[in-house]
Design a protein around this nucleic acid. Sequence first.
RNA 1: GCAUUUAUAGCUCAGUAGGAUAGAGCGACCGCCUCCUAAGCGGUAGGCCGCUGGUUCGAAUCCAGUUAAGUGCACCA
Length: 589
Amino acid sequence: MKKILDIIADELICAFTACGYNEKYARVTLSNRPDLCEYQCNGALPAAKEYKKAPIAIANEVLEKLNVSTLFDSKEAVMPGFINLKLSTEFLAGYLDQISSDWRLGCDLIEHPKTIIIDYGGPNVAKPLHVGHLRSAIIGESIKRIGKFIGHNVIGDVHLGDWGLQMGLIITELKLRQPNLVYFDKSFEGEYPTKSPFTISELEEIYPVASSKSKEDTDYKEAAMEATYLLQNGCSGYQALLKHILKVSVTDLKKNYENLNVSFDLWKGESDAQPYIPDMVKYMKDNGYATISNGALVVDVKEDFDTKEIPPCMILKSDGASLYNTTDLATIVERMKLFNPDKLIYVVDKRQELYFEQVFRCARKTKLVGDDTELKFLGFGTMNGKDGKPFKTREGGVMRLENLITSINEEMYNKMKENRTLISEEEALSTSKIVGLSAVKYGDLSNQTSKDYVFDIDRFTSFEGDTGPYILYTIVRIKSILAKYSELGGGGEHMTINPAKSESEKALMLELTKLSSVVESSFEELAPHKICSYVYDLANAFNRFYHETKIISEEDATTRASWIKLLTLAKKILETSINLLGFEAPERM
RNA sequence: GCAUUUAUAGCUCAGUAGGAUAGAGCGACCGCCUCCUAAGCGGUAGGCCGCUGGUUCGAAUCCAGUUAAGUGCACCA
C-alpha cells in the first residue's frame, strides 16, 4: 500500500512542478506543530533562494495548484512560508479500512529481498550467560524479526565460542578429577558413551576453577595447551568430550534463550570455521595479500584516507597458531560459500569496532567478499547500573542472565499480587514472566543501540510511564473491550471505519497509518528504538481516545461498530509492533 | 600520545534530510474513578541543547576550536 506521506508528496510534486519549481522542494513531513497541522511542507523556504522570491509567495502559488479537495480538510500557507496540511477525515477513514483488510497492515513486502546473516558475537560454551549477552540477544532478535517482516531472508547465527584454550582447560580439569573415564584411555577403540560424564552445573563449576588454576600453575597451563592441541589435531577421545561439552552447553543455552524469546536459525560456532582456515591462509599467501611482520602473518589494511593508525589484520600468530581474526575471516568464507549473503550484520559490543574494521577491510581487500556484500558492524553500548558503571551484582561480580531474569520476574510477580488480588497463582506466575520480559526488552530497545544505558529494574518494571508494561497494559485494555463486545453479542455485522468524530480519534487514526514507514526506517537504520517510540506514541493516542470515548455503551450501532473496527486494528498494529521488538502481551494483567 | 564516542529539564532518555514555541517518562505540585482495567487521563513548575566562534534568512542539528567523561590502539576473544 502506498504510504500517506507518499500520496501527499505526489500531489505536492505536481503542484510544485506545475508552478515551475523543482520537485525536490516538495518534500512532506509529519508536522512538528500538531496544534497547527498534521503534515507540513517547508520546501518554499529553500526554494525562495533559488528562485529569488518571497517564500510565502511560493507557498501561496503552490497551494493554488494543489487541487485535490478529497485529500485535505484544510491547507494553508503560513508565514514565513510553511504549507500546513490537515488530512481529510473521510480519506483517512477509507485508508484505515484498506489497512484493516490488508493482512500485512499496509506494509509492503520488499521488492528485492536480501539474504542477511546476523552474527550475535557468540556466547562461550561451558560458561553461563551473563548480562553482557543480553543486549546482543535482544537487539539481534529484534533486528532479525524486523528484517523478516519486511521480507528479507534473515539468518540468525548464535556463533558459539567453542574453540581454543578454554576447551583444553575443561578437559584437563576433568582428567584430573575423573582419570578413569574412557575418553582418557588412549587404547580405547569402541564407541564412546552417549551420556555426558558431567551436568551443566558441573561444567560451569569446572571452567572457572580450571581457568584460575592455569593462571597460577604453569604445568597445568601447559597440560591444557597440550590438550587443546590434541583436541584440534584429531584425538578421538577429546573430540568425543567436546561433543558432550557442546551438547550440554547448547541444551542449557537454548533453555535460557527461550526464556528470552530469542531463537537462532543456526547454532554454528567457531569450530565450524576451522576447516576453512588452511586454504584461506594459503590463498592469502599465494596472492600476496599476507606478509610476515614481526614473525606473524598479517594483512595490511591501512588506507590513504585514514586519520588514525589502523594496525594490520593478523592472520596467524608468530607461533603459527590461528586466532580470533583467523576464525572470523574463515567464518566469512564459510558463510559466503553456504549462503552467499548480501549482508552480514555483527551485533557486538561497540568496543570491538576497530577490530571489526580490520576484519572487514581484510575481507574486502583479499576479496573474501565481493563488492555487493555489505559488512555491517552494529555496536551496542554497555549496560550500566544506576551508578553509571557497568552492571554488577550487589557483591560486585558478574550477574548471571538467569538470575537477572528471575529477579525481574519476582519483582513483577509481587507487583501483580499487590494490584490484582483476584488473580490465580498460576496466572500470576505466567503473566509476570510475560510482563517482566517486556520490561527488560523495552527498557533495552528504547535506547539507541550504540549508546550506553542505565539498567534500572525499578524504572523498567514500573507500571507507569514509557515502559514495556505500559504498552502491554494498553493492549490488554483493548482486548478486554473487544472481549466484552463479543460477549454482548457484537461482531457479526459488516463494519466500516467512519470519519473521526473527535480530535483524539483522528490523532489515533493518524498514528495507525504510520506502521509501514516506521518499520522501514527502523530496519534501514537498524534502530529498534524507533519502533519503541512509535508503539509508545500509539499507546498514548489510544489511551487518550479511550479516556473520552465510551465504546461499549455507544448507542449508535454504526459508530460503535466503527470504533470496534478501529480498536481491532489498533490491537493488531500494537501486537505486530511488539512482536518486532521480541515480546508479546498477556490476555489480562 | 593518537584515534574515537558521548554531553539536551533534578534523574533517565527522544529529537526524524538545518525550519515555526526543543519534547517524553520519572520525581515534585494540582485536578479526574456511579462509567469498557486509575498499571489510566488532564494540568502546573522545571532548559544559554557542555563552552567559544563560524556558515545560514534560520543551528540542539553543519564546520572549526575548546572542556569533561567513556572506549580503543597487532600475537586475548
